[in-house]
């Protein structure tokens, strides 16, 4: 039985980030789970910069085989990227391709001084040389490819992690 307490992990992630953020640190959540997580971290860490969000649909490397995501969201970067310290936030890190797409998109807004990656869970299975700086939990072994691990948010705002067959 798969059991991970997303709320506890979220708190642990915020604590691990706290010594490394300043008033100037900017968070960018990746749609959709990463945005929920980033909202939570933004509040927990008392960050002053407005929260950014990115939908990587237009930068995915599987567009040529899978086509366009049917309902892409608007990316919103409400701060000046040039010279900023940015932490990209995602719920689950898997192949690293989403992170790469987010980096590519971010750089089309300007040249940040530094970019870090914060994730709730690392499920293994990386296909690119990408590693998170902040990670609340690493699974003991990589999840099989036919399984998906996703952050969910109930109407009251509680976060949970759900394992499903993809």
């Amino acid at each position: 039985m798969f059991k991970l307490d997303a709320e506890a992990l979220c708190g642990a992630l915020a604590e691990s980030m706290r010594p490394h953020v300043t008033a100037k640190t900017c968070l960018v959540g990746i749609h959709t789970g990463g945005v929920w997580l980033a909202q939570r971290l933004h509040a927990d860490l008392n960050l002053r910069q407005p929260l950014g969000s990115i939908d990587v649909s237009f930068y995915r490397d599987d567009y040529g085989t899978k086509g366009l995501h049917p309902q892409p969201q608007r990316s919103e970067i409400p701060f000046d990227v040039v010279g900023a310290h940015i932490i990209i936030v995602d719920d689950v890190l898997y192949t690293g391709r989403t992170t790469r797409a987010a980096l590519n998109e971010l750089f089309d807004y300007g040249r940040p001084a530094k970019v870090d990656l914060a994730v709730l869970v690392d499920r293994g299975g990386r296909e690119l040389p990408i590693a998170p700086r902040f990670c609340a939990h690493v699974l003991d072994g990589p999840l099989p490819a036919n399984q998906s691990l996703q952050l969910e948010r109930c109407p009251e705002g509680t976060l949970s992690l759900r394992l499903a067959n993809a």
Partner: peptide, 23 residues
Amino acid sequence: TAILDIAAPFTEVAEREVKKLPL
């Protein structure tokens, strides 16, 4: 409707420094 939905986030590209997407 899908075309209209997909068009919405494309409007934002015009506000970026690099007005290009790699699709």
